[in-house]
Design a protein around this nucleic acid. Structure first.
Lengths: 149, 149
DNA sequence: AAAGTATATTTGTACCTACAAATGTTGTTA
DNA sequence: TAACAACATTTGTAGGTACAAATATACTTT
């Protein structure tokens, strides 16, 4: 009996069933997105940081800004950014006015890569909602919102 | 602007908004469960494996059985089980009839630990659905089901 | 029975995550 | 101004995850 069968057949408490459903679905989404990114040698986290940098529209981001916006706030954003820099997808400058800070920008190279990846990830995301109508989607989003308060 | 504000204010395509919502919520649940497990020095994955073993009700499980039931099927179940064994929460016997297989059981020690942990994790899970009624929960579960097909 | 194939697990590698401690910088205050 | 607190980032360590290759055993076929 795999996890999917387990979810459907077991008489789980409703709270556990919900939380397992969310975790399993998230796992599936991550696998699909990771698959779409694989040809580009980019991990999901690297991709997310790159998108955050693009969202800055030229304005440089420092590490704390990036961390706030990441799905999982983590302490090793430094190391993630290191890898983007090594691939010439981002660049880093020590902030002149406050030398504790660091300014991070996406490079032209990074922007071009995102342009190539975007349609692939969009396709994965759209595939997910294929069997849902607008109202159903809103219900799920609102429900998840409630869970997070 | 943090991720939560970003989700609410940005004009994201609905598919991306949904997938981000699921990922962020899953992350939150994982953090909360991990927090509940921390006093017991158990990671979420170790806890999951332990629960799967308990679910076997005495019947030993081999590695593939465990993997099927895990939220994220992974190739290092060996190493996870190693850690449970090191803590005397599980035991492993090479299967006599088929020596490629390995039989894994939860120990008395493991069962006792789960008994202590269960109420803490239940509390976390119930906290999640606090503001939702039965029907809303069912809607979310069915919606996530649709997404996974 | 030897060779090849399938099965079950283990190991290696690279990356990601969480927590805590360390480093370096700036601002404050005695 | 020296000491101290606050801030921003970096580093260390112990886990977890994914993929691929390696190992070990069992089954099949000739």
């Amino acid at each position: 009996m795999n996890i999917e069968e387990h979810l459907n057949t077991s008489n789980l408490p409703v709270a556990r069933k919900l939380s397992l459903n969310i975790l399993v679905t998230a796992q599936l989404i991550e696998e699909k997105v990771a698959g779409a990114l694989k040809p580009f040698d980019l991990s999901i986290q690297q991709f997310n940081v790159l998108r955050i940098l693009r969202g800055q529209k030229g304005k440089p981001a420092n590490l704390s800004t990036i961390q706030e916006r990441m799905v999982s706030k983590m302490s090793n954003t430094t190391r993630l950014v290191d890898k983007l820099i090594a691939k010439d997808l981002a660049k880093r400058i020590i902030c002149k006015s406050n030398r504790r800070k660091v300014e991070i920008n996406i490079t032209e190279n990074g922007l071009q890569l995102l342009d190539k990846i975007d349609p692939k990830v969009d396709a994965v995301e759209n595939e997910l909602i294929k069997h849902l109508n607008r109202e159903e989607i809103e219900q799920i989003i609102n429900g998840l919102d409630e869970i997070r308060n």
